[in-house]
Design a protein around this nucleic acid. Structure first.
Lengths: 328, 328
DNA sequence: AGTGTCCGGTTAACCGGTTTACCACTTATA
DNA sequence: TATAAGTGGTAAACCGGTTAACCGGACACT
């Protein structure tokens, strides 16, 4: 029995051999709990069976969920995932270069994209397969995203149905494509329904939500409902509301895109819109593995079936005419 | 010029060669941006330059921070990290076996330890270097932990100094060693100061905190201060307080171990104790790399210099005699 | 003069798979 | 009957580093 034959059998090649031989090999492999040595295979095949996943931060649950989906799917496909926090774009770019040139990864999933990031050029130069997930690069043909518009539209629908006639959206950095999709869905649906609307904010963080809330509450006539692009921002909004003595949902309604256990334990419990972030991560792995198999890169849009998780932060507006109410 | 010589030069061996030769090799490597192929090196050396990090969950910021520290330190040391969410102990154990037998990792960092987990036996059988971080295994000599006791003691000190005479600790699962250290520090210091104290709770999650809070508030004479083992639990406590119309810190004080941006934006902003989780992750990498270099496994305790981050959730008790106050 | 040692390298085996080339034998085909 | 097409495999090169063994010349020492 030559190791050559064993190799081909275990790799599932269709061969003209006696079934008995096949079975002997398979049985022996089982018995020895045989696993091909990754390095040896990698050396010969010129591929590593690993990919890297670049995240802006691990502490943001949005990206933790994307990671979860990606890592899980990758393990199913027997691919290893190297997580990298991309806090310093130049450093991250250099790091990926090292990983590629060191023969550690076959491809990269980039969830930390932002304008002026050197990564796309680096990846292009290295000629390595890659996809952008969540934060996309228009025209790259390598984007894995959700139809965030739908989530925003649903939020607007829900609030409008409750009777709100002036709705604000607290958005993230305008340069991020996720922000743009969220804003687009929001504005389009609000316009369609003839609902007055405004977009503020420039950061997905708690402080970002807080700043946006300050701005809104300082308006001569504040909105009666606020839709935030992230749960994190909603926390910031709630915080400012508390400080100003505004009550939710009595004085204004609040709804956030993104669902976490935390939402249930905020005060009041936050009505939110669920989005399939883990599936997004899984889809990114699928797309990248597809490229590694030779498929042409193409954009993928994951179907979201956004749902309103009804809790206590959204209700009818204080004044049916649609005018906002200030703190007493 | 033989590749053998180049290899040895680039690996920094001291050799009897002309400086000129040395420089030529180094210059050429620079020019070509040469990086040794990980697989080839791995194949020959019998080591992979990679390790895995097992976490109970990525969405818990405690573990996100440990990961951050670990990944960062590993990259500095030119070691790759494979993150694995260990939600299903049996599965995780099997997965690690696959990674080891497939020659993908040299060692494992386990942050997801719990009693009855099959992982230690698996790792022992495979004879692979490993360390336990945060959640430790007494007697294993492979623990990387903090002196959590200190954080708890500080919390008690702070609350006692404010005048509290009956303090509760909301703990995690009693079987986890982190919980035990936290409880130990709490009880010891409270006893030392002659402060009445009680320990409740069995889960670090928001619901866990909420359940514990219910229990405490239902007491005939509730504590005037609550110290939670995690920020997450504090959120649960705050939630129940809100529902019952209890005000913080007017009706009771709240302080949590663990510092996150979120603390600043809770209502009221949460006084918390900072602990160096990222450093813990980094120390775990150091310990594991030490083992890979041949050091004997040994326990490591990371110095915490816990500090109270003063915000608004802790104040003097409502009644200086120390008796708790119920909702009106 | 012979021998040992340092200098400055070179050669070749090896790690553990994968893959191409090839071989001996049997059966169908022209 | 020669030839081609399966059947059931084996042998060896190769991937790109690392490392042990070896080599020729200069010099020192005995």
């Amino acid at each position: 029995m030559s190791k050559a034959l064993a190799s081909r059998i275990l790799n599932g090649e269709r061969l003209p051999i006696r079934p008995e031989t096949h079975d002997r090999v398979v049985a022996a492999a089982r018995r020895l709990a045989y696993r091909p040595h990754a390095a040896a295979r990698s050396l010969k095949r010129g591929e590593t069976g690993a990919l890297s996943l670049l995240l802006p931060t691990l502490t943001n649950p949005v990206f933790a969920l994307i990671s979860r989906g990606a890592v899980e799917r990758a393990l199913e496909r027997d691919v290893a995932v190297l997580l990298i926090e991309d806090s310093e774009p130049a450093t991250a770019s250099e790091l990926v270069r090292r990983l590629v040139q060191g023969g550690r990864i076959d491809g990269a999933i980039v969830a930390s994209m932002q304008p002026e990031h050197p990564l796309p050029r680096t990846l292009e130069l290295l000629g390595i397969p890659h996809v952008f997930v969540h934060r996309t690069v228009p025209g790259s043909n390598r984007n894995v995203s959700m139809d965030d518009q739908k989530a925003s539209a649903l939020a607007v629908d829900y609030l409008a149905r409750l009777g709100h006639r002036f709705i604000a959206h607290v958005a993230g950095p305008r340069l991020l494509t996720t922000t743009q999709r969220l804003v687009e869905g929001f504005s389009a649906r609000a316009a369609e329904l003839g609902v007055r609307h405004v977009v503020v904010g420039d950061d997905f963080s708690e402080p970002g939500g807080a700043r946006a809330a300050e701005e809104l509450f300082d308006l001569r006539e504040p909105p009666t409902a606020i839709y935030t692009g992230s749960l994190t921002q909603a926390v910031g909004v709630l915080h400012v509301a508390f400080e100003r003595g505004l009550r939710v949902p009595d004085d204004f309604s609040l709804i956030a895109s993104g669902e976490l256990t935390l939402a249930n334990f905020l005060n009041p419990p936050l009505t939110s819109i669920s989005v399939p972030l883990a599936e997004l991560g899984a889809a990114a792995v699928d797309a990248l593995v597809g490229q590694l198999r030779g498929d042409e890169p193409r954009d993928v849009v994951v179907e979201t079936h956004p749902e309103v998780i009804v809790r206590s932060s959204a209700a009818r507006p204080p004044d049916p005419t649609g005018a906002g109410v200030r703190a007493p």
